[in-house]
Amino acid sequence: MAASAAVRRDRLVGYTMVAPVVLGSLAFVVLPLVMVVWYSLHEWNVLANTFTFVGAENYQRMAADPGLADALRATLWFSVGLVVVNIALALLLAVLLNQRLPGTTTFRTFFFSPVVVSLVAWTIVWSFLLQADGGINGFLSVLGVEGPNWLRRPDAAMAAVIIVQVFKNVGLNMILFLAALQGVPEELQEAARLDGAGAWRRFRSVTLPLISPTVLLVSIITIVGSLEVFAQIDVLTGGGPGSSTTVLVYYLYQQAFRFNEFGYASALAVLLFVIVLVLTLLQWQSRKRWVFHEV
């Protein structure tokens, strides 16, 4: 069935409008990805300038690499910890800022400000504060608590890296949640209040379902973002102590740029991409179960 001239013209406009981003994706996303897959089938030492086809060898090597297993475990802890703490804190701050309390504008600016601060400066300050005898433990000792040697103990180091990262970026998620909260019709809240629902109940049963699409999107962005965190770990712990904070991206970076193993690093990049893809698809699939309404 031939489309009418008007429909054809409209289609042409559609193709024209999406052309820049589609062609850009082909050139700057898909082509590089294909190149990475190609590299992953080679042993490529940049320094020695060797580029040898090895088939699936890099992928077989992954299966037997204890370093990778450690990295995946660290990545799991880091991502779960980051997403839970980040989303919970972002929601808490957004709810607090939505109460029309005095000074709300100032506090909103405070919480958002780290988003625009350079990562370098941010992480440096925290690396001072987290020293065994640094500002944090000094503060804790005033409260009568003896703080751990944050960056030297495996569990504490992971917690420290997560917290520093959360403080840096939670402001953005907070703003997204705040915007969503302001879209929740007041009448619904009021109706629930008249039904005798307490504040927590109203939040659970009215607010949360209504902002669930935002929660979904924010958690997708946060999880993907958590898998890309590298610089903070480099600065704060260098992946240690032991390999406790060596997450996948950091491991990949080490393989590529420190060990010059570009082939293996490319295979790790493919793995990282697949993990992100699967996670995103899973979350997207699950949206019907817990997201209140579709966009």
């Binding site: 370098v120 992480t123 440096i124 690396s127 001072f128 590298f230 600065v235 704060l236 260098g238």
Partner: peptide, 8 residues
């Protein structure tokens, strides 16, 4: 990613 005091 840059200068951590220690690393730097």
């Amino acid at each position: 990613m840059s200068a951590h005091p220690t690393r730097a």
